[in-house]
Structures are given as structure tokens and as C-alpha cells.
């Protein structure tokens, strides 16, 4: 009998472990794939600063990066493997906080072989159609928010690789820090657009976005860059879409619990028979 009880306790513990193990990840990634949530934050919590308190409460998405396809020399040799992305909105301004590992802060392009670190974000000029990922096309251009260690911020319009042209009156601000082997850059812009071809983020639908980054000390520049696939800012209405991952994890968790219970029952029965 004592043995039986012990077995039951162990079984219950095991069940608990299995269930928490199965459900815990659903808490962290209860979000459709490639979605970047846009949180409302308070302007007095300094979302414009990489270290602003506003960012403490904003969930981060880890975006993997790979070398962009390109005919340029050594295009497949890039060094940045991922960017941590957060986004927020406050008082009609849209903020994006990007953070990635890079041991050296390359802030200069003052010698022939020197290149500066840089990061860029692209969003479709027209958010209802997803443009080609390589900087859009003539008919479906993208807005590029570009920050470079030596030159500050640029807001560009592009219709395909090699076609970037600056907006006449740029509306993007940036603030950057390099600390402990990581860059953290906050880009911001008024949520609404006031110029032709400028992406408006004051919309009731999800907005495509993708990322690029360059490590200057590895001579990364132009098409030699790390890029992400398309993500989207969650700006659309209603519930957060079908959380596939959560659903799958829940089903898996329940299945494991079920199997465990059946097994325990079977063990008990066998034990009972021997008595």
C-alpha cells in the first residue's frame, strides 16, 4: 500500500512537470509566427531612448538574419545573425527598438577601408500589398529607415536593389547606444504619413516589415548585408489571429498528460494484480 501511494505521488509529480513543460512555451510565444506586437507606451517613459523605461514592458521578438542574396563579392560572408525587435506607439509617434550583437562600434568611414555599422528597416509604401523582399520594385516601392554609425539617419524610398533615393524632408529620428557588445538603436517616425510615398502606420491592418544590418568592421555595406524575412507589425483589428503555436503546444501537452495517466493506471493495475 505504501509503495502504491509513493508511486501515485511520483506519477502526479511527473504529470505536473510534463504539463508545465508543455504549456510554459505557449506563454512566451502565444503569438502568430513573424508577428511584432505594437505596444502603447507613455511618452514620459522615454521610448525615443534606447534605455528608456518604456521598453521594459514591451515584448521582444528575436528575428533571425541571413546573408542577402547578391552578386556582390563575398556577399555570403556576413556576421550579424539576429536582431531583437520591439515596437511601440505613443502620442502619434511610432517607435522601433532594434538590438543586435556586434563587438565593435564602427562609427567611422574616414579611411578607404573603413565602413560604419548600420541597420535598416523596410516597410511597403502601400501597406495593402507585400512588395518583393529585395527592396521592393518600381511598381511596389518600399520606405527604408536607415541608420548608419557615421552618418546618422536617412529616410529613403526604394524600388528595387540599388535604387534608394532620400526623401526630401526626412521624418525618421534615431538614437543609438553601443554597450556590452550590443548595438541598441531606436528609430521613430510620426505614425501618420504626410508625404507622397511615405508609409502610413495609422492603419487598421498588419504592416509588413523586414530588417537588414551591416557590420562595418567586416566591410559589410550595400548588398553585402544580413537580412530577415518578412515580419509584420500587429496593427490590424480584432483578436491576435490564430495562435497556431499555442494550439499545437496545448494539444501536445494534453496528449502527454493523457498518455501519462493511462500508463500510471496500467502500472497500478499490474501492481494490484501482484498483491
Amino acid at each position: 500500500m505504501a509503495e502504491d501511494r509513493l508511486l501515485a505521488v511520483w506519477a502526479a509529480l511527473a504529470c505536473l512537470l510534463v504539463v508545465t513543460g508543455a504549456l510554459a512555451p505557449t506563454l512566451a510565444s502565444a503569438r502568430p509566427a513573424n508577428q511584432i506586437p505594437v505596444e502603447s507606451v507613455r511618452a514620459d517613459e522615454n521610448p525615443q531612448r534606447p534605455t528608456g523605461e518604456a521598453w521594459d514592458a514591451v515584448p521582444a521578438v528575436e528575428v533571425p538574419m541571413t546573408s542577402a542574396p547578391s552578386g556582390l563579392p563575398n556577399a555570403d560572408e556576413t556576421s550579424i545573425e539576429g536582431i531583437r525587435v520591439q515596437s511601440a506607439e505613443s502620442d502619434g509617434r511610432f517607435y522601433l527598438r532594434l538590438s543586435w550583437a556586434d563587438e565593435t562600434a564602427d562609427l567611422n568611414a574616414s579611411a578607404p577601408r573603413e565602413f560604419a555599422d548600420a541597420v535598416a528597416v523596410q516597410v511597403p509604401a502601400n501597406t495593402s500589398v507585400r512588395p518583393p523582399i529585395a527592396m521592393g520594385s518600381t511598381r511596389n516601392p518600399v520606405n527604408v529607415w536607415y541608420w548608419r554609425g557615421d552618418a546618422g539617419t536617412e529616410e529613403l524610398l526604394a524600388g528595387g536593389a540599388g535604387t534608394t533615393t532620400p526623401f526630401e524632408r526626412p521624418a525618421v529620428n534615431a538614437s543609438a547606444t553601443h554597450d556590452d557588445g550590443r548595438w541598441t538603436v531606436v528609430l521613430s517616425r510620426p505614425t501618420a504619413a504626410d508625404a507622397a510615398n511615405r508609409t502610413t502606420l495609422a492603419v487598421e491592418r498588419d504592416v509588413d516589415v523586414s530588417f537588414a544590418a551591416w557590420n562595418g568592421s567586416e566591410m559589410e555595406r550595400s548588398g553585402r548585408k544580413s537580412v530577415s524575412e518578412w515580419y509584420h507589425f500587429r496593427l490590424g483589428p480584432g483578436p491576435q489571429g490564430p495562435p497556431y503555436e499555442s494550439i499545437l503546444w496545448t494539444i501536445a501537452g494534453l496528449a502527454i498528460v493523457g498518455v501519462s495517466l493511462v500508463t500510471i493506471q496500467a502500472v497500478r493495475n499490474t501492481g494490484g494484480g501482484a498483491e
Binding site: L72, P73, A109, S110, A111, P112, E114, R221, S222
Partner: peptide, 18 residues
């Protein structure tokens, strides 16, 4: 200022202006 021309010219007759 990407300097692909600087490396691409075998005579090194393109110069980068910093």
C-alpha cells in the same frame, strides 16, 4: 561611397573621399 569601384579597378584609379 560603397567603394566597390575602388576595389574593382585594377589600376586603383578610383579614390574614396571620406
Amino acid at each position: 561611397g560603397y567603394r566597390y569601384c575602388v576595389e574593382g579597378c585594377p589600376y586603383k584609379k578610383v579614390y574614396y573621399n571620406a
